[in-house]
């Protein structure tokens, strides 16, 4: 089977769905963060795929954006984990079901 754009897009959509499922269904804050990382990875894969199968030759814009995105994701993970630690210190839990202070 030859790698075509559709294959990459399907894989990317699958990855995004898995990430979304993780974010919506897991109760642990760290798993939610992992879900977010998976969705980011799916987006990166899309950038690379559209760049790879676009008209050639051209500047490596897709790779650049993916690299930026990875850097931002790292920063995001750092901030997210710091927040998880802060939440844990405050509430003594990381279960998002119990973090319902915004309930109306």
């Amino acid at each position: 089977m030859t790698p075509t754009l559709q294959v990459f897009l399907i894989i990317s959509a699958t990855l995004f769905s898995i990430g979304l499922l993780a974010v919506l269904s897991r109760r642990h804050a760290i798993f939610i963060l992992i879900g977010i990382e998976i969705m980011l990875a799916a987006a990166n894969l899309n950038f690379i795929a559209f760049w790879r199968f676009g008209p050639q030759p051209q500047p490596p814009t897709g790779v650049m954006i993916a690299l930026f995105s990875i850097a931002i994701a790292a920063a995001e993970a750092a901030v997210g984990l710091a927040m998880v630690i802060a939440v844990y210190r405050h509430y003594h839990t990381t279960n998002v079901d119990q973090l319902d202070q915004l309930r109306g």
């Binding site: 979304l20 915004l102 309930r103 109306g104």
Partner: peptide, 16 residues
């Protein structure tokens, strides 16, 4: 006020 459960995942689900 029932809709505002405070559950982040419910909100995200609605967004999805």
């Amino acid at each position: 006020s029932g809709a505002h459960s405070g559950q982040i995942q419910t909100y995200l689900g609605a967004v999805a």
